[in-house]
Simulated scan of single mutants.
Amino acid sequence: MQTYFLTSDFPNGFPEAFITALKQTIVRQEHFVFAASSFDKAEVNEKYARKIMDMFAAAGFHFQTLTILDDRLPLAQIDQVLEQAGVIWLAGGDTLAQHASFERIGLREKLKKTTAVLIGMSAGAINMGDQIVLARHELDN
């Protein structure tokens, strides 16, 4: 059985209720995978992956490895990385760019096979679905 968390941003760190739910759910802290929203922005991905890892550390989680899933990770290694993961974090950010990257590597299908805890934040939560609708409203000024 898979466990999913769908979230928005955490501007003040993880709230206690979220930490409690994580502690009840996460059993493997060896490997953490951070799936980026913009696969071609390595520096940005590093920044946000570290921010998320810092919030996990503040909550008492200490993962042995962090793998950032973006264009730097060879396609041949993706399945192995996902298989080893205890937690897979689908980052927030550019929903459409992330969707295109997920489609390119077949990530949603791969995620159906994982035993990792899946956490989708904002764009990542949207892109966890099999059918995705992104409504954009433009306001007339």
Rank of each mutant, 00 (worst) to 15 (best):
E109S: 12
E109W: 04
L75C: 01
M1N: 07
G124W: 01
K47E: 10
E138T: 12
H31A: 01
W89P: 00
R136D: 10
N45L: 03
F102Y: 13
D71M: 12
T115N: 14
F5N: 06
H137P: 00
L82H: 09
N12K: 12
V44N: 12
G13Q: 09
A42D: 12
D71L: 13
L75W: 01
Q80A: 10
A21F: 04
I19A: 04
S38M: 09
Q84K: 15
I105D: 04
L69W: 05
T25M: 11
N141D: 13
E138G: 12
N45S: 02
A85H: 04
H99V: 05
V44Q: 13
T115K: 15
T95F: 04
I119L: 13
H62P: 01
M121I: 14
Y48R: 00
I52Q: 07
G106W: 08
E30T: 15
T7V: 06
F5M: 05
V117L: 09
E16T: 14
L82E: 00
A35T: 03
F34H: 05
T3D: 03
L69F: 00
A135C: 09
A100Q: 14
G120F: 01
F34E: 02
G129A: 14
N141W: 12
A116P: 08
D130N: 13
T25F: 11
Q2D: 03
S38Q: 10
I105Y: 07
E103G: 10
I126D: 07
F10H: 11
L139M: 08
D79L: 04
R50K: 14
E103F: 08
E16F: 09
A123W: 00
A116W: 02
N12F: 10
A123Y: 07
P11Q: 03
L82A: 08
A76D: 12
G60T: 05
I68K: 08
A100C: 10
